[in-house]
Write a protein that binds this DNA or RNA. Structure first.
Lengths: 205, 205
DNA sequence: GATTCCTTGTCAAGTGACTTGAATTAGCAC
DNA sequence: GTGCTAATTCAAGTCACTTGACAAGGAATC
C-alpha cells in the first residue's frame, strides 16, 4: 500500500488509507508478538531501527515495500495477509484456509484464531485459540509450564502428549484438558501430519 | 533464591512452601493482569508499595495475612482460591467414543470434556469444553447471551451460526470466536449430522 | 530489658520494552 | 539542479516492572 496514493489531495481516500495503515501495523505487531520477538530483535533481523518498527506498528508511517518485504520474510507471514480486507466476518468467523499463518519452526505451523490476548488495550479477553499443524517428527519446544488451562482436540494424525509425569498417545478425535501448571509437551509420532485445535486461557481461578 | 538449605532443618517442607509461595504469586499476578491493573494501580488500591507486590508475585516474599486480605479484596477473589491445589492427574485425556454423553434434546447430544469440573464457579477452572452433535434440522435453544467468551471449530457438517446481528454459514473446518454477551444461536442447515467442538469461559475480565 | 535473627515492608535506583520528536536521508516532481 | 514529502534514524523519554540496601517490627534467647 502506501505510495499508491502519494498523488496528494483525495479527501475520502485519506481515511481509508489511514485505517488500513493501522491494520497493517496491528497485524505486523501480532505476528511479531506471536513469535515472541521484541522490537529490538525484529529490528535486528530485518535490518532497520526499533523506532521505525514502533511507528509502523502504530500506523504513524507506512513502510517502504522492500522494508515490508523483509518484515514479512522474517516473520514468516506473507504480504497478502497483511492487507486482507475485512469481510464482515472479521473477528468472529475464521474460515478454513483463510486463517493467519504463524511459522513456529520448520516442522510446525500455526493458524491463529483468537490472538487478542496479545493486543494491548483489549482487556477482557481470556481465550487464546489456534491450530497447530505438526509434520511427522515435529515436536513442541521443550516441556513448558505456566499458569492457565488448556484444552484441545486432535483433528488428524497421531501425537504423544506429555502432561506432568504422564504420557498419552492420542489419535484423531481424542481430546484433552489440563492445568498449564503441569509441564506439557507434544510430539508427532505418526507418519503423517497431525493437527490440533488448541485453546487456552492465561489464567485459572 | 532458595532458602531451601538455610541451616534450619525442616528440609522437605521448605521446598513445598517455596513452590506454593510461587503459585500464590502467580495467581495474584494473573488476577491482577486479567483485570488490566498495573502494579502501581494495585499498589495504590491495596495501599502498599509497588515493589512489595513485585516481590510477592515473584515468590520472593510472602505477604502478611492482612496484606493478602486487602489484595484479594481489591482483586475480587478470595484467599481460598489462591491456595487450591491443582487437581491435574486424572481427567486429562478424553478419548473419542469414551466421553460422557449429555442428552440435550432429541436432535442434539453433547459429549462432555471439562464440563463436570466447571459447574458454575468451580474455583480454579475457567474452561468449559464439550462437543455438540446436531442432527439435521436441530438447533440450539433460542438465542442466549451471558458473560464470557466462546470459541469453536466445526468438525463436520454445516451450520448456520448467528452472533449479534450477523448470521454466518459455516462448513467443516471453519472456526469462530465471539463474546458471549452477543446473543448467539445455531442451527444445522445441512442434511447430515454436524459436530462442533465448543469451548467457553464463564467470564471475561 | 537488651541482643540477635528473621521477615515484611519502603525507597530509590536500575532495566528492558516500547514511543516520541528532532534531525537526516531518499525519492520524486518540477 | 531546487524544493517538497515521506521514510528512516538517533537520542531522549516514558512506562511497567525488578532489584538491592535499608528501616521497622516480632519472636526467641540471653
Amino acid at each position: 500500500m502506501n505510495k499508491i496514493d502519494t498523488h496528494n489531495s483525495k479527501g475520502g481516500e485519506e481515511r481509508s488509507t489511514a485505517t488500513s495503515l493501522l491494520r497493517l501495523g496491528t497485524r505486523l505487531k501480532l505476528s511479531r508478538q506471536t513469535r515472541g520477538l521484541t522490537l529490538k530483535a525484529l529490528a535486528a533481523a530485518a535490518n532497520c531501527s526499533e523506532s521505525l518498527l514502533s511507528k509502523v506498528e502504530n500506523g504513524k508511517v507506512s513502510p517502504s515495500l522492500p522494508m515490508l518485504h523483509r518484515l514479512v520474510e522474517v516473520l514468516g507471514t506473507n504480504i497478502g495477509w497483511m492487507f486482507e480486507e475485512a469481510d464482515g466476518e472479521e473477528g468472529i468467523v475464521f474460515r478454513a484456509g483463510a486463517r493467519p499463518l504463524i511459522a513456529l519452526d520448520p516442522l510446525r505451523r500455526g493458524e491463529g484464531i483468537s490472538l487478542e490476548r496479545v493486543i494491548p488495550y483489549s482487556p477482557g479477553h481470556l481465550l487464546q485459540c489456534n491450530i497447530h499443524h505438526i509434520e511427522a517428527g515435529g515436536e513442541s519446544a521443550g516441556p513448558i509450564q505456566h499458569a492457565g488451562e488448556e484444552v484441545g482436540y486432535l483433528l488428524e494424525g497421531a501425537i504423544e502428549l506429555m502432561v506432568g509425569e504422564k504420557t498419552f498417545r492420542l489419535s484423531a478425535g481424542d481430546s484433552f484438558v489440563f492445568d498449564s501448571e503441569l509441564p506439557h509437551w507434544y510430539r508427532n509420532v505418526g507418519d503423517e501430519r497431525a493437527s490440533i485445535f488448541w485453546v487456552n486461557t492465561p489464567a485459572t481461578f
